[in-house]
Amino acid sequence: MSVIQEFKEFAVKGSVVDLAIGVIIGGAFGKIVDSMVADMIMPLIGVIIGGLDFSNYFIALKAVPPDVAMTLAEVKKAGIPVFAYGNFITIALNFVILAFIIFMMVKQINRLKREAPVEAPPAPEPAEDVLLLREIRDSLKK
């Protein structure tokens, strides 16, 4: 079998196609979760803890000139290295939320997969010789 033929068989297997679809859907789902965290959850957390925006939590690793605004974007634009721990908090929270959502989805799918117990199949028909022996036995009892 040629390498091309083997690759063709590998590429068209259902599991490879399923994996590709999963990666594509996962990427789109990740964007939804990113938006949910950045646009909905982090602002609520910021309000709860006093109106703070995690995205601008950073430590400049070099002196920041006075003409540069003290926002993460401006400091990075000025080429100053930063320790952006606020961004890390946002991404870590994003991961926790995504993991929880996936857990809930898998839990729901597993619940739906559980089917009612399968009824025992009917007993197999006795073999022909057994049926004949039963007929003989029954006829002798008469």
Score class of each variant (00 low, 15 high):
residue 1 M to W: 06
residue 2 S to E: 10
residue 4 I to V: 13
residue 6 E to I: 11
residue 7 F to P: 03
residue 7 F to G: 01
residue 8 K to D: 12
residue 9 E to R: 14
residue 11 A to Q: 03
residue 12 V to W: 08
residue 14 G to K: 03
residue 14 G to N: 04
residue 15 S to P: 01
residue 17 V to I: 14
residue 22 G to W: 00
residue 23 V to G: 03
residue 24 I to K: 03
residue 24 I to H: 01
residue 32 I to S: 04
residue 32 I to P: 01
residue 33 V to N: 07
residue 35 S to W: 15
residue 35 S to A: 12
residue 42 M to H: 07
residue 42 M to R: 00
residue 42 M to L: 06
residue 43 P to G: 04
residue 45 I to T: 03
residue 46 G to Y: 09
residue 47 V to L: 12
residue 50 G to I: 05
residue 51 G to A: 08
residue 51 G to N: 10
residue 52 L to W: 05
residue 53 D to W: 00
residue 53 D to G: 06
residue 54 F to Y: 01
residue 56 N to I: 00
residue 57 Y to G: 12
residue 57 Y to I: 00
residue 57 Y to S: 06
residue 63 A to E: 15
residue 64 V to H: 06
residue 64 V to M: 07
residue 65 P to R: 02
residue 66 P to E: 09
residue 66 P to Q: 08
residue 67 D to W: 02
residue 67 D to S: 09
residue 69 A to N: 11
residue 72 L to M: 04
residue 72 L to P: 03
residue 73 A to H: 13
residue 74 E to K: 11
residue 75 V to H: 02
residue 76 K to E: 15
residue 76 K to W: 06
residue 79 G to F: 02
residue 79 G to E: 02
residue 81 P to A: 04
residue 83 F to G: 01
residue 85 Y to D: 04
residue 87 N to V: 14
residue 88 F to Y: 07
residue 89 I to N: 02
residue 90 T to Y: 00
residue 92 A to R: 02
residue 93 L to R: 11
residue 96 V to F: 09
residue 98 L to Q: 08
residue 99 A to C: 03
residue 100 F to E: 07
residue 100 F to T: 15
residue 101 I to V: 14
residue 108 Q to M: 06
residue 110 N to Q: 12
residue 111 R to S: 14
residue 112 L to T: 10
residue 114 R to F: 10
residue 118 V to R: 09
residue 118 V to M: 13
residue 123 A to M: 10
residue 123 A to F: 05
residue 124 P to C: 00
residue 124 P to Q: 07
residue 124 P to F: 01
residue 127 A to F: 05
residue 130 V to A: 11
residue 131 L to H: 01
residue 134 R to T: 13
residue 135 E to C: 05
residue 136 I to P: 01
residue 136 I to L: 13
residue 136 I to D: 12
residue 137 R to S: 14
residue 137 R to F: 14
residue 138 D to C: 04
residue 139 S to A: 14
residue 139 S to Y: 14
residue 141 K to N: 07
